[in-house]
Design a protein around this nucleic acid. Structure first.
Length: 223
DNA sequence: AATAGCTCCAACCGCAGAGCG
DNA sequence: ACGCTCTGCGGTTGGAGCTAT
């Protein structure tokens, strides 16, 4: 017996199961993430909204990549970290399909030590070579902001986590699906005494979903 | 083969900011 | 102006898997 059947109010923690992933993916692809706090309830998940959001952003999001971080990506992370500091979201936005969490983990587990070693190495070289000239010094040895030297490779396309309207099904799930949700809701409303609050207590999950989607639709279109 | 130590990553936690009534 | 809710961000942690002894 799982925690869900024991107590629907228990917030489950720890690793996500395949079933949970499928529920979350299916729900968001159909209705979008209109409210992370309420989403787990409607999606049938015993998770916090925060946990759902994190799982979606870091793992289930369309086009998200896992592992196999390339040298080029490492270089971008190192350069941007030098410029921006621990702004993982901003750094991740420059890496197609990488989450801020993955970038952060990459830095903490690989790049941080590498950069520290490199800088130590450079400082040692400087100390051991008194004849070095300023214009020959490696640029990475400087502790100053080298933002003017910073270049993002031309083949790296900037992106954000916001679901701007691109016309693409995977990035615009909510608005594309909302039309059918509204149609369903309208039909359902006519059949169920539209506007009667007293009938809401008997709402089924799909009915609740339709109303939630409808509310988001109206809000989005400034009704 | 056993196990201690280490690495890496998924997930959690706390906080800050935005938005709203 | 204030308090509340929700979202997003960055720091931290737990544990699975790997490596060395």
């Amino acid at each position: 017996m799982d925690t869900l059947t024991l107590d629907k109010n228990i917030i489950k923690k720890g690793a996500w199961t395949k079933e949970e992933d499928e529920k979350l993916r299916a729900y968001i692809q159909r209705y979008g993430h209109w409210n992370w706090c309420l989403l787990p309830k409607f999606a049938g998940l015993s998770r916090s909204g925060k946990s759902c959001r994190l799982r979606w952003m870091n793992y289930l999001r369309p086009n998200i990549k896992h592992g196999n971080i390339t040298k080029e990506e490492d270089e971008i992370i190192v350069r941007l970290h030098k410029q921006l500091g621990n702004k993982w979201t901003a750094i991740a936005a420059q890496l197609t399909g990488r989450s801020d969490n993955e970038v952060k983990n990459r830095w903490n587990s690989h790049l941080k030590k590498r950069v520290q070693d490199d800088e130590t190495h450079v400082l040692e070289n400087i100390n051991h070579d008194e004849t070095i000239k300023p214009d020959e010094a490696p640029s990475c040895s400087s502790g100053t902001d080298n933002s003017s030297d910073y270049h993002i490779p031309s083949d790296v396309t900037p992106q954000t986590y916001d679901y701007e309207l691109t016309g693409d099904f995977w990035t615009d799930p909510f608005l594309l699906d909302i039309t059918s949700a509204v149609e369903n809701t309208t039909t359902w409303g006519l059949e169920h005494n539209f506007g009667s609050q007293s009938s809401w207590g008997d709402m089924t999950m799909s009915e609740e979903l339709s109303w939630s989607a409808l509310g988001s639709y109206f809000e989005y279109n400034n009704y």
